[in-house]
């Protein structure tokens, strides 16, 4: 009697658990579908709403191509500078003991914590007409605010911690034994880095580069503050989308946006591929 009762109870909790499972999976899938998938579908649909020809015209518009070039330039520069910084910073923080390490780590994370608009603001306050660096730059005829260097600087600023953040956990988990052994055997700093450290952080570095690229090509707030919106000069792809949208050229805006959607999807696929490889290599 009690056995059958127990069996019935077991069965009911099992079906109950299954019900919960189905409910939770449906909730999760619906949420992601509505919040993330539909907006992507919407961009592509709106981009083609006036036909293929209108789409092509928007994509091959000289301003769009100029904006694409500037976005690529800013992204490549930001990734290059932040890779150099990320490697040096992660190496310093994880391979040496020194005072104020915690403070240094916190300071590096600042750009991650502040609003992109504020990031743009501090650059304007430093290099703009009222900035204290203005006279000095002006003397050498260097223009930063409302010019291409400003766009690049803003992009570097907002993506600054991206690569070091990915490297630090991997390097600190790995410890310093191998590097110390190499050093005691007489290897130089650069050789130790290239032959001992780099193979361990290969995937983490690539992962950081992918994340940095994603953020750099899409940066809007900081770049918007510093660009001055000069068409064909200081317009990045996201800023170009905004201008077209505010001009009520909706089809063109979505057509240009669709380039960025495609780039985002490529980045997502790369990200997942690298994460999978890193897990396999045991880095994570």
């Amino acid at each position: 009697m009690s056995q059958t009762n127990k069996a019935i109870q077991q069965k009911s909790t099992n079906s109950n658990a299954k019900g919960v499972k189905v409910l939770l999976i449906s909730l999760g899938v619906i949420f992601i579908f509505i919040m993330l998938v539909i907006p992507m579908i919407a961009v592509i649909t709106y981009a083609f709403q006036d036909g293929l020809k209108a789409y092509q015209e928007a994509i091959f518009d000289p301003y769009t191509i100029k904006a694409l070039q500037l976005t690529l330039l800013a992204t490549v520069t930001a990734v290059a500078i932040n890779t150099v910084f990320g490697l040096f910073a992660a190496w310093t923080i994880t391979k040496f003991k020194f005072r104020g390490k915690q403070l240094l780590t916190t300071l590096i994370d600042i750009p991650f914590a502040i609003s992109p608009v504020i990031a743009g603001l501090v650059l304007v306050l430093t290099f703009g007409k009222i900035g204290w660096a203005y006279d000095f730059l002006n003397a050498y005829d260097i223009k930063i605010v409302f010019a291409v260097p400003g766009i690049i600087l803003a992009t570097v600023f907002v993506t600054f911690p991206f690569i070091s953040r990915e490297l630090i956990p991997v390097l600190s988990a790995q410890g310093t034994d191998e590097e110390e052994a190499a050093a005691l055997m007489g290897a130089g700093g650069f050789n130790i880095f290239r032959k001992v450290t780099l193979p361990h952080i290969k995937w983490a570095l690539l992962y950081g580069i992918v994340l940095c690229t994603a953020r750099a090509m899409g940066e809007f707030g900081a770049v918007s503050v510093i660009s001055g919106h000069l068409r064909g000069k200081t317009n990045t792809l996201p800023l170009h989308v905004e201008i077209l949208y505010n001009d009520f050229q909706l089809t063109s805006a979505f057509a240009v946006a669709s380039i960025l959607v495609i780039l985002a999807v490529i980045i997502l696929i790369l990200r997942n591929l690298i994460e999978y490889k890193a897990k396999k290599a045991g880095e994570k």
Binding site: M40, L239, F254, A257, A264
Partner: peptide
């Protein structure tokens, strides 16, 4: 589904803005 979670990081915010 797992791969899609990071979409908001990868999609430029202005694109998300006009789509929404």
């Amino acid at each position: 589904l797992d791969g899609l979670i990071e979409l908001p990081f990868a999609l430029p915010t202005a694109v998300a803005g006009i789509a929404l």
